[in-house]
């Protein structure tokens, strides 16, 4: 019972985090059919910058965290501009390789500037644990899903009710018509990469206090989030968040009951199985074959 509760709490926490990062994949994919494979590095960047601003420069959290997220947004813009756009113009798929390389580059730049030691991003929410049904829970673990869902909802509101947000939805739903409305679709694509990276940065800041901050912390998060985005079908934000929770819970369940050595094998085997049965993801819409 205690094990089950512990697994549930861990699963929901991690799942919402994966969902948040996966949302970033989904947004750029719907806007431009591209994804930023350096998304994991953006998770890392958010956490590292949060540490640098708040711990090294002593900024208050209220200033340091938003600043870190903003910087992630800028990094996303740079990724789009230098690593995606040149290839998109040529209709080449090399953006895939380029963003991977961008991730390697970023990880290593951070390694040499931030240092090679793992650090801790302190948070008052991990100093004391609460006892929930016999298992210890840090307030941060409760905060993560709440914050993640909050961010997702806020983003949704932003899309629906602001002029630029609507414009972004328009680009997603009909690129050509969006151009004819006078929407600068190039800017929108860049914007989607910025938002995507900011989501990743957010996730990095949320998970960092439970984990440690170091230059290669994001790689696995990025990969798992990519799996989540794919499972969610890459089309709907809700589906992606839901897929995040499912993935998190399955992962925590496997870790708890089979041991963490089997997590990757079991979870990824399930991913392949699901995609074999539903090639466009758990909640993806099958495209109608157009002839």
């Amino acid at each position: 019972m205690t094990l089950l509760i512990a697994a549930l709490i861990t699963g929901i926490g991690l799942g919402s985090m994966y969902g948040l990062v996966a949302l970033g994949f989904q947004i750029t994919y719907s806007v431009s059919s591209k994804v930023n494979f350096a998304q994991g590095s953006m998770v890392m960047l958010g956490a590292v910058l949060g540490f640098v601003f708040c711990e090294q420069y002593g900024f208050p959290v209220i200033l340091g965290y938003p600043l870190a997220i903003l910087c992630c947004g800028v990094a996303g813009i740079l990724v789009e501009f230098f690593l995606v756009r040149p290839f998109a113009i040529r209709n080449s798929e090399a953006w895939l390789m380029a963003t991977v390389a961008g991730g390697i580059l970023l990880d290593n730049v951070v390694l040499f500037t931030f240092g090679n030691e793992p650090r801790t991003l302190p948070s008052n929410l991990v100093s004391e644990s609460w006892n929930v049904f016999g298992t210890g829970v840090y307030p941060q673990q409760i905060l993560i899903p709440i914050a993640a869902i909050g961010v997702a909802l806020a983003l949704n509101a932003l899309f629906r009710h602001t002029r630029q947000g609507r414009a972004l939805l328009a680009v997603v739903q009909n690129l050509q018509a969006a151009k004819l409305m006078g929407i600068n679709t190039t800017v929108m694509v860049t914007g989607s990469f910025a938002i995507s990276s900011m989501l990743a940065g957010c996730a990095g800041l949320l998970i960092a206090p439970l984990f440690s901050v170091h230059s290669d912390m994001g790689t696995l998060f990025g990969l798992k989030a990519f799996a989540v985005a794919i499972l969610g079908g890459m089309t709907s934000a809700y589906a992606v968040m839901l897929a995040g929770f499912i993935y998190g819970l399955v992962e925590a369940g496997v870790t708890t009951y089979l041991g963490s050595s089997y997590t990757f094998i079991v979870v990824f085997a399930l991913v392949i199985a699901v995609l074999t049965i539903k090639p466009s993801g758990l909640f993806g819409r099958a495209a109608i074959k157009k002839v």
């Binding site: 994919y29 990969l223 990519f226 799996a227 794919i230 089997y262 094998i265 392949i272 995609l275 466009s280």
Partner: peptide, 20 residues
């Protein structure tokens, strides 16, 4: 039956399963 990122994911997952 897949293309693009979906195919990438399946092949990545396969490689991970083999490694682990």
């Amino acid at each position: 039956r897949m293309a693009g990122p979906f195919l990438a994911m399946v092949t990545i997952a396969f490689a991970f399963i083999v490694e682990h």
